[in-house]
């Protein structure tokens, strides 16, 4: 009895120890995107230009829509509203959640603690201490260019 019990327990232990985990499975997606996980592999994305600006195909952002994209890991919110295409830092100045733009209310809203910013990125409600930073945007001939700093 005891021996059988010990062997059963030992077998379970061995199975745990020698189980082939995901190391043996091939992982889809790039294993090297260190900041952004699998999220960046589909959908529109920003391409870096030699002058340090970032480009987006204008077709990817129709009127009345907004996107959150990554500039080397820095999330930027690009929105196409009635004042044209504008880009803001997407990071809420309170505790770092990512804001969304609501076309209905014409404001940025943070899902975490109710921070709200007007269409120019100025705080209008909630705990955020600072306004959202706006990036300079050049939107001509089918190409949206965003200039960091």
């Amino acid at each position: 009895m005891g021996v059988a019990g010990a062997m059963a327990a030992g077998w379970s232990v061995l199975r745990f120890l020698f189980a082939s985990g995901p190391k043996a499975h091939s992982m889809p997606g790039g294993a090297f995107s260190s900041t952004v996980g699998s999220a960046e592999t589909s959908g529109p994305s920003l391409a870096k230009n030699p002058d340090g600006s970032w480009s987006l195909d204008a077709d990817a952002l129709p009127m009345g829509q907004s996107l959150v994209l990554s500039m080397s890991g820095v999330p930027v919110l690009i929105l196409h509203g009635n004042k044209g295409v504008r880009a803001f830092s997407a990071t809420c100045t309170h505790l770092g959640c990512l804001v969304r733009f609501s076309m209905e209310d014409n404001q940025f809203q943070c899902p975490c603690h109710g921070g709200k910013y007007d269409e120019n990125g100025r705080v209008v409600a909630g705990p955020p201490p600072m306004d959202l930073k706006e990036y300079r945007v050049d939107a001509d001939d089918g190409d949206i260019r965003i200039f960091p700093v």
Binding site: S12, R15, F16, L17, A19, G21, P22, K23, H25, M27, G29, G30, A31, F32, S33, S34, T35, V36, G37, S38
Partner: peptide
């Protein structure tokens, strides 16, 4: 023993412990 601390592997290895490893 089964967890891989890398952004592209962490979630999969964490989940795999629950679904694929005996007693995981």
């Amino acid at each position: 023993l089964h967890y891989e601390p890398h952004p592209s592997l962490a979630f999969a290895s964490f989940s795999a412990v629950g679904t694929e490893v005996p007693y995981g």
